[in-house]
């Protein structure tokens, strides 16, 4: 027997626990610090900043909800807000129908593993990996009214009257951008849907086929309900993406949502308000922060509602 007492042994075990806790702290503190400094601190400050007056980079007096009143109720400003909001809603709905609808069809077809389906997956996904800036510029060139690829093709097909200045007309500018966005992103929901379909046990589909169900019935009655979780995720991601839409309109038609604010978005408006723009106003951090808080609250609330509703549907269908 050694001379150590029972208490000594307890202490030795406690020292081991302490060493383990230090090790955990070593693992956790750096990432937590980075997250705190560069995410939580600025997010918190955004709320704080929205209730102050700002003069450039200098914080002024506490003004309560004045900034919010200004952006929401002063007609000079609120008309921009509501116009942009309307455009974001249009973007969301159109993207849901055009892009995600097409993605669903493509995924259902690819799930049957037709010849060359690996090739199709790669091709459909190719634009997804490219920078929005590249895509935006590329299509800006293609949509050029005089020499752009699109109008050239239309003229070559004898549809001269269709060769419009697509990005220059208020009626066609936003739809054009939405189509460009669909072209850019369609591969993403396609492959997410496809992965979800692949996770459905083959037995279900085979059982339905033995029951004599047509491919259409199988798609509608078996595959669609069982891929519900993927649908939830895509709807929420599309919503968040649509209300953060910035790069495509910025690159293709500039910060002012030309022509005539027909492609103005909340993201552009926020940027203009916060950092100023050539034509409009000076930089206003107060109003900008108020806008940011409003946009965040809106996106957060609606995402939560979507998630709730769609998860309830998942459970019902499962």
């Amino acid at each position: 027997m050694t001379a150590m007492t029972d208490a000594d042994f307890r202490r030795a075990i406690r020292a081991r626990t302490l060493r383990r806790n230090l090790w955990l702290a070593f693992l956790l503190l750096p990432p937590m610090a980075v997250m705190f400094i560069f995410i939580f601190l600025p997010m918190g400050s955004a709320v704080l900043y929205s209730v102050y007056e700002w003069d450039g980079l200098v914080r002024g007096d506490f003004v309560g909800l004045e900034n919010f009143r200004e952006v929401l109720f002063e007609p000079q400003k609120s008309k921009f807000l509501f116009n942009a909001f309307k455009n974001n809603v249009i973007v969301f709905v159109s993207v849901m129908v055009v892009q995600n609808g097409l993605a669903l069809v493509l995924a259902m077809l690819l799930a049957r593993e037709p010849k060359g389906y690996r090739f199709y997956q790669v091709v459909f996904f190719l634009p997804v990996i490219l920078s929005t800036v590249i895509i935006g510029f590329q299509w800006k060139l293609f949509l050029n009214p005089v020499f752009g690829l699109v109008n050239n093709l239309l003229r070559a097909a004898g549809l001269d009257s269709w060769a419009l200045p697509w990005l220059g007309l208020p009626e066609t500018a936003l739809p054009s951008m939405i189509l460009v966005n669909a072209w850019h992103w369609v591969g993403f929901p396609t492959l997410v849907f496809l992965a979800a379909i692949h996770r459905i046990p083959k037995d279900y589909i085979e059982a339905a086929r033995l029951d004599g169900a047509s491919e259409w019935r199988i798609a509608r009655d078996i595959i669609w309900p069982l891929m519900a979780p993927a649908v939830t995720i895509i709807v929420v991601l599309t919503f968040i993406g649509a209300f953060n839409w910035f790069e495509i309109p910025y690159v293709m038609n500039g910060l002012e949502g030309a022509p005539g604010y027909s492609t103005d978005m909340l993201g552009l408006l926020f940027y203009r308000t916060a950092f100023g723009s050539i034509s409009a106003t000076d930089s206003d951090f107060g109003a900008g922060s108020a806008l940011a808080v409003l946009i965040f609250l809106f996106i957060f609330t609606v995402s939560l509602i979507f998630t709730r509703l769609l998860t309830a549907r998942e459970i019902e269908l499962a």
């Binding site: 027997m1 050694t2 150590m4 029972d6 000594d8 042994f9 030795a12 075990i13 081991r16």
Partner: peptide
């Protein structure tokens, strides 16, 4: 696992505090 109570000896030496 660490002991909650008691003792373990190998060849007469306490080991329950050792890694």
């Amino acid at each position: 696992e660490d002991l909650t109570a008691g003792a373990i000896e190998i060849d007469g030496e306490r080991v329950d505090h050792l890694s």
